[in-house]
């Protein structure tokens, strides 16, 4: 091999999602940036669609070196990255604040770093789902009374919150939601704007209640620790730099996609429109309160793992406050650029 070929290294990246949509575009961007900035010595070889590692096996597979990098969801890997899961316990919907707080938390918090070392995973950067909304098929839901008696697909902290309002919840994988709403065995689902578009839920449901509740932040990219250690110091620095930029990049894209998708859904896609309704303040506030209380379950899990749960939670909450203040003072960085 020529010296140029010998120097080129393609990192095997396992992505469980399809090569479409915001996340895929962000990964393509990352690959390109990596190649450009490394002078062609570092790039990604992406396996899409979970053909190598599915969402459920990604974290373990990454830790074992099946892939050099992978998109991971820690909730599917019990006990492996519990500190990371703290980022899902606070109900707020701001993409940029959430992602930057999570990035800083995962790259500076002692407990989080310790856990990554044990898991043989180096945190790279973050995704987000954007704020949680409520999709319903037949009737708009703006109060607790509207929710009473409905069957809603829900996960995590939304299960106790919705059940407290008289809904029954079901769990099912995202690809099944279409069928379930279509035949009416579910009346709706907690969801995110981009999911409604990607999974075509506008074809079978008519309303979204804009709850703007919490986002999934324990959802990002990791690198196998051995892979990271095998990189040259320059390459490591590049990877660190790209991780933060990638997170900021995805934050901007997700923020914009939420606005765009919302407009598209209201406008109608293929003639299918979704009406967006606002919950009463009282309804939303009480859902947030119940969902936030669900942090108790995380704290129990963290304590079992020997973590100072309150301290870790406090550290993340402080970062959320920090970035909220920064946003309130300066606006979003991309707004500053365009001004």
């Amino acid at each position: 091999p020529t010296s140029a070929e010998a120097q080129m290294r393609e990192l095997r990246f396992a992505e469980f999602g399809p090569n479409r949509g915001t996340r895929a575009a962000a990964l393509e961007w990352l690959d390109q940036e990596m190649r450009d900035r490394s002078g062609g010595t570092l790039g990604l070889d992406i396996t899409w669609g979970g053909a190598l590692l599915g969402a459920k096996t990604a974290a373990q597979g990454l830790s074992d070196g099946v892939a050099d990098m992978a998109s991971i969801v820690p909730v599917y890997a019990p006990g492996q990255l519990v500190a990371y899961e703290v980022t899902d316990t606070i109900q707020f919907g701001d993409e940029w604040v959430g992602m930057m707080a999570t990035y800083e938390f995962m790259t500076t918090n002692e407990a989080a770093l310790e856990e990554q070392k044990k898991a043989n995973i180096k945190y790279f950067g973050n995704y987000t789902t954007g704020p949680t909304q409520l999709l319903t098929r037949e009737a708009p839901v703006t109060t607790a009374a509207d929710l009473d008696g409905l069957t809603i697909r829900a996960t995590g902290a939304f299960v106790p919150a919705l059940e407290a309002k008289g809904a029954s919840t079901v769990s099912m994988s995202q690809p099944k939601v279409y069928e379930a709403i279509s035949n009416g065995s579910a009346d709706g689902s907690t969801t995110y704007y981009y999911v409604v578009k990607a999974y075509k839920h506008y074809e079978v449901a008519n309303y979204i209640t804009e709850l703007n509740m919490g986002q999934v932040l324990a959802f990002g990219i990791g690198m196998n620790m051995n892979t990271y250690m095998s990189l040259t110091p320059d390459q490591q620095a590049l990877v660190d730099e790209l991780g933060r930029e990638f997170t900021a990049y995805v934050a901007e894209k997700m923020y914009n996609s939420r606005t765009d998708v919302k407009a598209e859904l209201q406008e109608g896609i293929d003639g299918h429109k979704i009406e967006i309704v606002q919950p009463t303040d009282e309804f939303r506030a009480s859902l947030v309160e119940i969902a936030n209380a669900d942090v108790a379950r995380w704290k129990e899990k963290a304590a079992e793992k020997g973590m100072d749960a309150d301290a870790v939670y406090g550290a993340f909450a402080a970062l959320v406050d920090k970035y909220t203040a920064e946003r309130d003072a300066n606006g979003y960085p991309w707004e500053a650029e365009s001004n």
Binding site: P18, R20, P175, A198, K200
Partner: peptide
């Protein structure tokens, strides 16, 4: 359904 997600096509269609 899987195809529809990969190809961004209407599942109903």
């Amino acid at each position: 359904i899987l195809y529809g997600i990969f190809a961004e096509q209407s599942i109903a269609k």
